[in-house]
Every structure is written in structure tokens, then in C-alpha cells.
Design a protein around this nucleic acid. Sequence first.
DNA 1: CCTTGACTATACAGGTCTGTATACTTGACT
DNA 2: AGTCAAGTATACAGACCTGTATAGTCAAGG
Lengths: 196, 196
Amino acid sequence: MNVPVLAPLTPAARRVLDAASELFYERGIHAVGVDTIAEAAGVTKKTLYDRFGSKEALVVAYLQHRDAQWRDLLDKYLTRVPEPGPDRVLAVFDAAISWSDENGAKGCSAINARAEIGDGHDGHPVFPEIARQKVWLLDLFTEILRDANDVDPATMAKRMMLLYEGAIVTVGMETYPHPFDVARDMARSLLTAPAR
Amino acid sequence: MNVPVLAPLTPAARRVLDAASELFYERGIHAVGVDTIAEAAGVTKKTLYDRFGSKEALVVAYLQHRDAQWRDLLDKYLTRVPEPGPDRVLAVFDAAISWSDENGAKGCSAINARAEIGDGHDGHPVFPEIARQKVWLLDLFTEILRDANDVDPATMAKRMMLLYEGAIVTVGMETYPHPFDVARDMARSLLTAPAR
DNA sequence: CCTTGACTATACAGGTCTGTATACTTGACT
DNA sequence: AGTCAAGTATACAGACCTGTATAGTCAAGG
């Protein structure tokens, strides 16, 4: 479904990517230098550049890596609810609750990355990646809803997307606790409500 | 209602704050240096530091400035709908539509700033400011809903907050067009639906 | 045996970052 | 007349940034 498969990594490259993922997510992309990443990974800067080519490319790999982990978790939750229906939509929110509990204290890495790149996102390789991730999820919602015989899957998917994005941001902003529970509740109401 | 009033600014300080607001918002905070800001404002770096003390303080001023502008616009929309009721909640979304059309192409400055500060937000003066902004809006929703005799203003305010945050992020991510229209629609349904 | 890929270690180039120091100008108010 | 706030102009310190260069180690595979 149009997701990039990252090339197999050498052991040192793995450590670089893991270190970069943690540091970029927790401190922000611009705030973390390549020396810091190399040191945290127990690797020389030369190795980092030999494997990834540039910091920008490493940032893209970081975003792909985190998204791949999220999709893996999501798959687990979706295969547990195989029959088409509203419960499959709710499974996305259940996965998001689990994900944000363990890996999401600062919100969505794609949204956070967006904040750090200019709005002239021409030629910047980060924007296509994060745009792709968001469209992928919107499309997933649409498919699940179509399979569930929703009367207007495209519109309902936009609504689900809004709830999802609102919740993940609220996690990062700490506006109030457990926003995904609220989002899940709203989704359930929308999906089980009689047609108005 | 616990909002900071920024001290009167000298002409040069005004230009610095205006330039900083545009540059920080469009390119990100870490991506913009003080030299760039000073040059854009037609001011020497010394003046910038004489007026604001540090880049960090200028960032806080930027966030307060943008929030003050948003609250001004919001006030205009709210005074247009003086009678308590659901329409006052919808007025917030109407204001947000207008705001994001003109000043919000990259989403919410507070959310974007959050992405650039570490999660160890102890002592960092930016986090309290953006947390205050979000709580302020949550409280505003709560008050409007209480005045509208909502049966559970606190819960409904959390829902409105989710729709608002989801929409503003979706604007910045360009996942799909006009998300605030979707959010406003969902809010209207929630507020006018018969009790379930 | 010997080449090749993966890696370490170290140094450095060239740029940008925040913040400060020094010296001067200008206009307003007392 | 004199003081003071606000500003310009310029230089610089010291740190940090991305990226490259040079030299060497080590293990696996043909």
C-alpha cells in the first residue's frame, strides 16, 4: 500500500537509527547534532555519513522507521478484529492508545518534523514523507469504513482523521490526560449513531 | 482571564517582533538566527538584545504576540454572538476558519514550538506559555458550554478541543482541504444532537 | 592470500550560532 | 545645557554545526 521498505541495515547503522530516533523525537531535529547521535550510537561520524549520506537522509530514515513501527503495531490490532465493521475503526484508536502510552509522549513525529521545515517545502525530502504518512492513514480509514458499508466513507474518514490528529497533539501538549479515550468515544458515537 | 499583557514596545522592538513572528512561524524557531531577524527588521543585533534580552525571551514574546492576535479575532467573533448557546461554540470555529485562512498555513505556533523544545521542559520558559494558551482555550470552551447549559461542559469542552486541535494540525499538514469545516460540522452535530 | 566492506580514530575546513563589547549618533525631556 | 533612552555600526569571542579527509583495523569470502 505504498509504504517504503527500508534497506537492511548494518549493526552500526541500526544503532545510529535507534539513537537518532530517540534523540530527534525527544529533543527535536534541529536541536540534535550528528556528533551527538554518533556518540550515543557508539559510532564515529564517518560511519554515520557512510551509511546515511547526510543528516537530512537520516531524518527521513528516522521518520520512515517510526512510521513502520506504528504500522506494525496497528496491524496487530487490526488482525485481531478481522470482520468488517465499525469495530475495526475503533481498533485504530485502540492501537493509538497503546502506541501513545509507550512511544508518544511528545505527540506525532511527522507533525513535529513539519514544524521544523520551512513552508517552502519544495525539494525538501521530509515533506513528501510526512504527507505520505498522513494520506496513508486517511486512506486506511476510508477503506475500513467502505468495508463497513459506511454511507460516506470519505467524509467519515476525514472526521476520524480529525479525532486522531487532535488526540495525538493533545498528548504532546498535555492539555488534558487520555485524549485518545475521548477520541475513541466520539468515534464510537459517530459510527453507531442512527442516521440523522 | 490570565493572559499576559505585553509591555509597550519601542518602534524598533515592534519591527523585531513582527519580523520574528513571520520568520519563526514560517521556517521554525531553531532554523532562524537572530542575525536574520535583526536584518529583516532593519535593526542591529544589539538593539534586539537590548529590547528582548535573549532569543528565548523573544520566542516567548513571539508566542504571546501571536496568541494575543488570535484572541483579538476570537473576541470579535464572540461579541457577534452574545446570547449563550451552542452558536457561541460554533463562533469559535468560525473564528478559527478565518484565522487559519489568513495566518495559519503552517498550523498552530504553540504546537510547532512544542515540537522544538525538549521533553525535559523543566525550566524552559516556552512550555508554560504554550500550555497556558491551550488551557485557556479549553477553559473558554468550558465556560461557553456551561453558559449554554450543556449537561457536561467539561467533557464537551474536551471534545471541542480535540476537533479544534485536529483541524489546525490538518491545516498545517495539508492532509485534506478545509478541515475546520469538517470540525465545525462535527461540533454542530454534537451540540444539537438529542441526548443519547 | 588477498580483496572488500564495515568500522574506528582523529583532525580539520568552513560556516553559523548566540551573545557581548566598544564607540558613536540622535532626539526628547528636564 | 545636559542627561538619558534608543538606536546604528562593527567587531569579535567561543561554541556548535555539517561534512570531509586521512590512516588504520578487522573479519569474512572467493
